[in-house]
């Protein structure tokens, strides 16, 4: 029997390699330019302003000094606010995952039709702006028309009360904002889990709860970490919700920075606060990320 000799592919391979390299370079150049214009240059400007001397101009009074950084460090309100923002973001992230994870799991167990309905519903809430949602919460928690009236009507409460401003209101609103993202991040991975995995665990003697915690949660480790990081970032950068629904002690760093920039007109201080806060947030994100990449 004669074998047909395989066609000579080496020339083609070389061609693909060459153009692939070339294409790869250009493909990467485009996002690099975009990143440069919209991220690197503004950040460099921020760094520059943060070491300028305090003053009313956009660049302060120019020159080079670390005075703004020192001022930020010595400002108790700023330091308290950094700690508060981090804790607030962590709590928001944990509540969102604790609520969003079982919710997403429940969606993946539903029929295709029900899944689509729920996902469309979740996506719909994303089309509302953060500001709108925040004010809606304010109305909902108000004394005259809010949910406390409903509780009174149900006989669970003696008289209507105002449920904002307080920390609970801030948390509720932030969790509401974050949960759609949580569901969207978890859904693809969760819907790919073979339902036979859970069934196998059940046949081996695991209760439904045990199956959930020993099989489903560990398999979803990666997406869970992504989710925690994302909700943490949304929470730590929150601005409208703490301002509208919180008291001054619930103000996040974002609010302080905005006050420094607009009310005090101190651009170097606002920039220095931003840089410091960015550093803190980056370190925490890095820690969360490292927690996620444990090898089996």
């Amino acid at each position: 029997m004669t074998l047909v000799s395989p066609p000579d592919l080496s020339r083609y391979a070389r061609f693909v390699q060459r153009t692939g390299r070339l294409g790869g370079r250009w493909v990467l150049a485009w996002p690099a330019v975009i990143l440069g214009i919209f991220f690197v240059i503004p950040f460099l400007l921020l760094l520059r302003v943060s070491v300028a001397e305090s003053g009313f101009g956009a660049m302060g009074n120019g020159g080079f000094t670390a005075a703004s950084y020192l001022a930020a460090f010595q400002n108790d309100v700023f330091v308290y606010s950094v700690v508060f923002s981090v804790v607030l973001a962590a709590v928001v992230a944990l509540i969102s995952i604790a609520a969003g994870f079982p919710f997403t799991y429940a969606i993946t167990r539903m029929s295709r039709r029900a899944q689509v309905c729920w996902l469309v519903f979740v996506l719909m809430t994303l089309s509302l702006s953060e500001v709108l949602i925040t004010f809606a919460w304010q109305v909902m928690l108000a004394k005259r028309v809010g949910i406390s009236n409903l509780l009174v009507w149900l006989g669970l409460m003696a008289e209507p009360v105002s449920l904002s401003p307080n920390l609970g209101a801030v948390l509720a609103c932030l969790v509401y904002l974050v949960i759609p993202f949580t569901v969207l991040v978890l859904f693809p991975g969760m819907s790919r889990i073979d339902p036979q995995m859970a069934e196998a665990a059940r046949t081996m003697g695991a209760t439904p709860a045990r199956t959930f915690f020993t099989i489903i949660v560990p398999i979803m480790r990666g997406p869970i970490v992504t989710c925690l990081m994302m909700s943490f970032i949304v929470g730590i950068g929150s601005y409208v919700a703490p301002m509208v629904l919180g008291r001054p002690e619930h103000w996040t760093v974002a609010i302080l920075i905005s006050k420094a920039a607009t009310a005090s007109n101190d651009m170097p201080l606002a920039s220095a606060m931003s840089v410091l806060f960015l550093a803190v947030a980056s370190v925490i994100c890095l820690i969360i990320y490292r927690l996620g990449v444990r090898k089996v």
């Binding site: 073979d194 036979q196 995995m197 069934e199 196998a200 665990a201 560990p218 398999i219 480790r221 089996v296």
Partner: peptide
């Protein structure tokens, strides 16, 4: 029970 997909736990 041995499943068609085997369902070995990947983690």
């Amino acid at each position: 029970m041995v499943f068609q997909s085997l369902a070995l736990f990947p983690h």
